[in-house]
Design a protein around this nucleic acid. Sequence first.
DNA 1: CTGAAAGCGCTAACAA
DNA 2: TTGTTAGCGCTTTCAG
Lengths: 376, 376
Amino acid sequence: MPVTIRDVARASGVHISTVSRTFSAPHLVNPETRVRVLACAEDLGYRPNRAARALITGRTHNIGLIIADIANPFFPPLIKAAESQARHRDYHVFVADTNEDAAAEEELVHALAKQVDGVLLCSPRMSNSLIEQLSREVPLVVVNRQLAGLPCVLMDVGQGARSAIEHLAGLGHRELALLGGPRGSWTSREIRRAASAAARAAGADLTVLGPNPPTETGGLAQAEQVHRAGVTAVLAYNDLMAIGLLEGLDALGVRVPQEVSVVGVDDISLSRLTRPKLTTVATPTAAAGRTAVDMLLQQDTDLPRTTRGGGATVAVGVRRTTAQVMLQTELVIRDSTGPGPYAGRERPGTAAAGPGPHRRADPGNPVVAAGDVVAS
Amino acid sequence: MPVTIRDVARASGVHISTVSRTFSAPHLVNPETRVRVLACAEDLGYRPNRAARALITGRTHNIGLIIADIANPFFPPLIKAAESQARHRDYHVFVADTNEDAAAEEELVHALAKQVDGVLLCSPRMSNSLIEQLSREVPLVVVNRQLAGLPCVLMDVGQGARSAIEHLAGLGHRELALLGGPRGSWTSREIRRAASAAARAAGADLTVLGPNPPTETGGLAQAEQVHRAGVTAVLAYNDLMAIGLLEGLDALGVRVPQEVSVVGVDDISLSRLTRPKLTTVATPTAAAGRTAVDMLLQQDTDLPRTTRGGGATVAVGVRRTTAQVMLQTELVIRDSTGPGPYAGRERPGTAAAGPGPHRRADPGNPVVAAGDVVAS
DNA sequence: CTGAAAGCGCTAACAA
DNA sequence: TTGTTAGCGCTTTCAG
């Protein structure tokens, strides 16, 4: 039933290799033959079998996308952008969900390795050394994790956390808390590092609570702790946790932002819909997805996979280019942050309202323009 | 570099066909040989190449998942459940996003057809006849669309819409509006049909506004119309639109539920987070994903794909079983609905508060238990 | 129970 | 420019 190259060859009266060439190297075939073959292919509804093709070319034209949790609203825009970008370049995307489980990540990379030309590892939870090891099995691009020898797409959450803390300190908050993210998260460490430094610089205390699951429940569960700790402002690992915290504080009768200010990270679409609307550090998720795919496919074109004869695969020359791209983040000030107990004191210039609200601007297409290359 | 069946054969001193059997028909191989082969495979890190295998078996062990819009929060839980269920059964999932575009759907089915054993079409926008035609190219399971000859997973939004309208009428609303969904959506038609009938039965007027894009913006854009139409209660095609409407009404200074009641459909996680919390018809998205995958794989096991000799593919006997599964929905009453102008009049028994709030219960694993088979 | 051989759909030398 | 041939990694008859 499925129509193969042979059917087309028969129909157009040429050898199958001519049909093959018509699709994979059209310039090597006589224009007249080409149109005839194309016509036959068309009305037989022929489509090359990519898997069969992959067997010999070594390129599947598929990529893998490994995601910690598809249901976490942070990821869908990234998935969508990655899939769209991949498809524009004639690649298809396997999507796999690991449920935030490091072991599942490893297994998935193995399972997908032979079926794809490369894998995007998004917010991985496994160790750096394991990632490096896996990268010898299949080309990898890592999102939200910095690794020396590998191409990475990073979001500058450090800068974001700093802005958030400065915003809060500027509003007169001195007792701050940080709701940490999950164990193994590079993002969580970055936020913690930057937030601690910024708090110190601003002469504020920062209590770290966590690690926590990066979910609404995770935030909700810490509401009482936050309340008891007597802090007046909280930075959460992500918006989901911030929203959970909002709910928890509401249940405890704590008013936001009058008694406690809350800042999230990500700017998921939900954050404009809570009451109060969430102040948050916007991360360019869609751009990250596009960029990561670009980097993976770039690498893919650079690296010849197979050489005929002997069946041995020979890595020809080209060393992997391991650019690391850092995408900018931006503090979006909404309604969940307000003046703290020291407002107007000690830092007169900045205490009033902070800078005017920013709107998140999702960067456009170009890879390099989307961020700064921090290493290569 | 990639280790093949031949490497394992060499290492364990047997013929490649024995290695092959060790993996695809272990019972046909001497236990002692088997363990030896397995051991060699293990420490060489051998994994069968599924694409090569597919070439001869006719089964790729992949499925395709075609989604109108990954970023629409309705879909991620479905994708997650489908991917998880597929993987449990040793299948991988291609995910593709169509941006609500019917033409893209068709192209994607073609593009994926050869690489998968079947495709899940979720909330398709293309015509029934086209879907039927495509189903001759690759096994299809359709979610949120009813088609005579094809396996479908449906959610009983008709019942849901009826409950919603009855709930509103019971609260004393007589002037109702329906925000319709996108053109080509079966769900939208079902809701409209059921809502109209229920309104008529309750002696209420129902103004239909639409079609609309199934997004927050789509709902927001209709706020003024709703206000101007003078209705006191609105049923929206989905939660996203309902939430947009909430925002729009808020901007117009219209209070919910005091002046206008709003009901959504889907019960996306967001709906518990808006203020007021959204009353909505919960749809069992995760169960739909699982069920659809089950039906697809069931079909896949039923339908032998290839027969050796002559290379012709022969459909052997078995007719496709085209069960249609209808999953239950449930009205979840929260804070966006309240008494209307006729509260307490004319229908004394029901006007007060309606039935107590329900919590959405996501049905468990089993396919058939998850709903009623309405046809087969 | 195991080996030999053919071939899935396709591409890539090599010859003509 | 086209046909011939070998073979990608694997499964599956068919003999032995």
